[in-house]
Each structure stands twice: as structure tokens, then as C-alpha cells.
């Protein structure tokens, strides 16, 4: 599968945005001493960060064919 440079950039941007959001949620959860802070961290923060990492890893997988200059796998 080939992705254009714009597509790669978008994936990286999307991944960065998700990670920044997730980390911001994590900071809020660390500064808030309440049982709901754990829920916020576990269900919102971790989900956003994990999704961001997955999108970044997906961008790496898609980057491999374009780095070799063709779409075939060796």
C-alpha cells in the first residue's frame, strides 16, 4: 500500500494530536485527587494515547513501501 507524502503527514499530525490530548488528560488526572481521576485516566487518557501510538505505528508500516520507492514487499 502506498500513501502520499500528504497522507503520511496527516497521519503523523493525527497521531501527535491524539498523544498531546491524551497526555493533557493524564496531567489533569494526576493533579485531581478523586476516584473519577482514575476513570478519566484509564478510559480517556490511555485510550487517546494508545490510539495515537497505533496511528504512528500505522504510519511507519505505510512508510516502508514509499521508502523503497515501490509498493512491493521484499
Amino acid at each position: 500500500m502506498k500513501l502520499s507524502a500528504i497522507g503520511m503527514g496527516r497521519l503523523l499530525r493525527f497521531s501527535s494530536a491524539l498523544i498531546v490530548l491524551g497526555l493533557a488528560v493524564e496531567i489533569i488526572s494526576l493533579l485531581w485527587f478523586h476516584p473519577l481521576a482514575f476513570v478519566l485516566f484509564a478510559f480517556v487518557g490511555v485510550a487517546l494515547i494508545a490510539l495515537g501510538i497505533l496511528v504512528y505505528l500505522a504510519s511507519l508500516v505505510f512508510a516502508v513501501p514509499s521508502a523503497h520507492g515501490n509498493g512491493s514487499s521484499s
Binding site: S16, I19, S29, F33, A42, V46, G52, L57
Partner: peptide, 29 residues
């Protein structure tokens, strides 16, 4: 920036939240 550090931050957050949830003040909050 997009893999190693965020994974470390999540691990640190889980550790801190687990430690925090063991405290008496946390339960009675």
C-alpha cells in the same frame, strides 16, 4: 516522541494511579 515516551508516560500514570488508589484518603474521598 510518539512511541517510547508516551508508552513510558502511560506506564508511569498506571503506576501512580494504582499507588494512589491504595491510600485511605483516596477511598474516603
Amino acid at each position: 516522541a510518539l512511541f517510547v515516551l508516551p508508552a513510558l508516560c502511560v506506564a508511569g500514570g498506571i503506576n501512580e494511579h494504582m499507588r494512589r488508589s491504595e491510600q485511605t484518603s483516596f477511598c474516603i474521598s
